[in-house]
Amino acid sequence: MNGNPALPHLSAEFFVWLWFASEREGGTMDLGEAGICDVWVDERISFRAPDEDRVRAVVTGENSSTAAEALAALASGKVVRDVQLHLRREEREYALTLRGVHLDLAGAKLPPHEAEGDDGLLYERMFLYEDLWFVIGALYRRFARERTSARWADEILPAIRAWAAGELADGDGSG
């Protein structure tokens, strides 16, 4: 880490890609160095207008990722501000909200841990935090590869538009 620019639009695009890719791939994604991980949008997605940070729409509930309101917000040009995710890597499960240009973690729930003493607890929680951050990094690297590929303009972006419009057929835009 060396003080790179935050590039706000790319965080918002990452959130959309996460949402789309998890739906496209049925919630199971091959993240290369992080292995096979289950990734799905949990119970909340919030949206903002492109030129402001204030929340304009929030979609909640068990089916928020497929809710017509959520897709309509995206199709109407709103920007994803934060997204609640569930990640599973090996036997470890994480629930969290990713938010904003710096990818802040909000309310990140770590897997159960039972280390004894403050020292042990700290080491275990830091291991889990780093594991979670590693998975998020692997997801971002995969997003970056897709976002910079020729397939983005030719296949993936049209597929996201079709999906947001409720028109995605099975197999479209598959990764």
């Binding site: 880490m1 790179n4 590039l7 965080s11 710096h102 990818l103 998020i136 971002y140």
Partner: peptide, 10 residues
């Protein structure tokens, strides 16, 4: 420096 997602691509 606040985290930048580009840091993931170091």
């Amino acid at each position: 420096a606040p985290f930048s997602p580009l840091d993931f691509l170091a």
